[in-house]
Amino acid sequence: MKINVKVNGKKYERDVRENMTLLRFIREEIGLTGTKEGCGVGECGACTVILNGKTVNSCIVLAVEADGAVIETIEGEAKNGKMSKLQNSFHEHHAVQCGFCTPGMVLSAKTLLKENPKPSEHEIKEALEGNFCRCTGYQQIIEAIQDASGQMKK
């Protein structure tokens, strides 16, 4: 089945098998490997992408269901080789250890800040409920998001 999508502002037209997940499409057809596969069943959030403005688990979305959609992945975050404010904040706060969950964390945080520019700590935790991190213990991630939203006392 032929599908048209816009990924990070660039248009793609591809003929895909109907059983292909959006995750596999992004990694193997488009070649953007920043989006990771963790559990493969929608629990860990490593495969988070933004689909028409909403974060989704791309491992349990079919590529054909994304026909006509606008998709944002972690590769769309940095512009001209420069990290975004949010990425910088993750970097500064050591919110990254192994890095496997980071693309999903950044995209969930990005969506949160777009809808709610000054989230409380509780709201940050709720927004990240679907993204598992097995290294940091989450505290640094929360601090990175607080800082990026201008709420960090320095």
């Binding site: 974060t55 349990i60 679907g130 993204n131």
Partner: peptide, 9 residues
């Protein structure tokens, strides 16, 4: 139910 990612779908 699930997480924000799940509830979005």
């Amino acid at each position: 139910v699930g997480s924000p990612l799940i509830r979005n779908r």
